[in-house]
């Protein structure tokens, strides 16, 4: 099982290295374990996360791409679709079988034709347009709806933190 997963991951890594999408870098931290990657995601322009470089880790299952990887931000995040521990809650990362929120149509969920690149692009679009129906972080969702200015202030603080700029 792990053999074909390895070949596919290698192909994806190669593609992401040769034709990297704007503002995204991803690859295995240590090639002794090719099933654990780190990704850097640049906050999308024109949003409150603009300019930040957010590190996240991706853990792939041995039967990848049949099952989706798990993704977790390793920096502090404040976002309606990101849990307090950094785990990302977007439909593309959910296997077709499980549906924790009970509202996603299976069209948006994981399938083997998805890829690391598509996941990361989805995460970028999630950063730009939070889905406040999914309650991964209820406080953030509430603030996003009711007090956008405060939300943006917190986001800018996080951006500075990821860049290592003193606040």
């Amino acid at each position: 099982m792990a053999g074909s997963a390895l070949r596919r991951l290698m192909a994806e890594y190669k593609q992401l290295t040769l034709n990297p999408p704007e503002g995204i870098i991803a690859g295995p931290i240590n090639e002794e374990n090719f099933f654990e990657w780190e990704a850097l995601i640049t906050g999308p322009e024109g949003t409150c996360f603009e300019g930040g470089v957010f590190p996240a880790k991706l853990i792939f299952p041995p039967d990848y791409p049949l099952s989706p990887p798990k993704m977790q931000f390793t920096c502090e995040m404040f976002h309606p679709n990101i849990y307090a521990d950094g785990r990302v809650c977007i439909s593309i990362l959910h296997a077709p079988g499980d549906d924790p929120m009970g509202y996603e149509s299976s069209a948006e969920r994981w399938s083997p034709v998805q890829s690391v690149e598509k996941i990361l692009l989805s995460v970028v679009s999630m950063l730009a347009e939070p889905n406040d129906e999914s309650g991964a972080n209820v406080d953030a969702a509430k603030m996003w709806r009711e007090d956008r200015l405060e939300f943006e202030r917190i986001a800018q603080k996080l951006v500075k933190k990821t860049l290592g700029i003193p606040i």
């Binding site: 290295t17 090639e31 300019g51 290592g164």
Partner: peptide
């Protein structure tokens, strides 16, 4: 570039990350 050696790949990845961070800081 996609190197054949894993050591070099790791190094290039690390540099790309550093470069991205520096660019982001400069832009900021």
């Amino acid at each position: 570039r996609f190197s054949k050696s894993s050591m070099e790949r790791e190094r290039i990845l690390q540099r790309r990350k550093e470069h991205m961070l520096l660019t982001a800081r400069r832009k900021y």
